[in-house]
Design a protein around this nucleic acid. Structure first.
Lengths: 182, 182
DNA sequence: TCAATTAATGAACTTAGTGTTGATTTTCAA
DNA sequence: TTGAAAATCAACACTAAGTTCATTAATTGA
């Protein structure tokens, strides 16, 4: 964490402004000039912290995934069930960062956020179940993309379910499919 | 389809060039200038056809999804099985457009392609199984994202399986989950 | 094959955002 | 309170965007 209060305040303000602007328009049409004007921060100051809009975007991502990793690691081995060790804390963390996640996963976001989330889930599932056949690999991809779909739909329908309910639902569909619901 | 041969040739060349450049770098860093130089086409000519790089990108997408829709509609009701009526023709069409799909779904692509593909699959699944509870809605999102995951992994691992094999695999994991494979 | 039409080119131009610099002011931590 | 460092401000050169218009080349259909 940055020591100097000025640095903390500047970065926080720029971050809030970027997320706020992303609610209205796509990351690809956002300029450094616009962010700085809305944040009322000198454009030169922006360049003291970030190379460009995408560099800033990536730094926010990195921050987010480091936090996520720290949270999930703390749940290590307290229980045997997937839903307790991985799914429930995952959904809880996403709920805490709801606004951020919604814009990042939306059509205004960048493909790299979704891909990093997928990559992260992939690492987790391989760590738990190992890496065997190419067929199993296909299933892993199905499941991790599927979870991102669940997450996206959950966040965009006012998170009516609790993280715990979502974890149960996710575990069920991962393991048993949707046959019984059709 | 455009009548004038000059128009057809110009657009085809620009399309090939864009896809080729996207193999090396992300859409967000590609300029009109670069495309035109690589295609050896006057920059002014580009603006006769497209507003900007993203407008071009969107037009290619639209073309692609119109074709996909036409293909899938032709399989209507020939069989009762999901894998025959939807999955097999879907995988076949994607295989035919492999190069295009790989770059569009890659980290060099734009989020809008993935989202349009998801949107399209969503419409299909709702058409087949209807729209009931919010719980079922969650499952739909799980399944359609899951399919995109399967597609992405399949295309990026040299499409070792046939479209028919992928259709069977997809149907199985959608309906029954992955319990038996762990 | 010819004539009318229309697409593509080339050059010029304005506009807008980028990224950097250096001097100056403000804020911070110790 | 003071020295250090962050933020500001104005100025700068640079690059790509997007438009205009006169000119050249290619196409279609009669």
């Amino acid at each position: 964490m940055a020591q100097d209060r000025r640095i903390r305040k500047t970065r926080k303000l720029l971050k809030q402004t970027l997320i706020s602007v992303m609610k209205e328009k796509s990351i690809k049409h956002i300029t450094v000039k616009e962010i700085c004007e809305k944040a009322d921060i000198n454009r030169g100051t922006f360049y003291l912290h970030y190379k460009d809009v995408y560099d800033m975007f990536e730094q926010l991502e990195t921050e987010f995934f480091n936090e996520l990793k720290a949270v999930l690691d703390s749940y290590h081995k307290k229980s045997i069930r997937l839903r307790d060790t991985h799914l429930e804390p995952l959904f809880s963390f996403l709920l805490e960062n709801k606004d951020f996640c919604i814009v990042m996963l939306s059509e205004h976001g960048d493909i790299s956020f979704t891909r990093q989330l997928l990559h992260y889930l992939y690492e987790r599932i391989v760590a738990v179940y190992g890496k065997n056949s190419s067929k199993l690999e296909h299933y892993y991809f199905f499941v991790i993309y599927g979870c991102v779909g669940l997450i996206s739909n959950w966040l965009n329908t006012d998170t009516k379910e609790t993280p715990s309910q979502m974890a149960e639902l996710a575990e069920d569909v991962i393991l048993n499919g949707i046959r019984k619901y059709l």
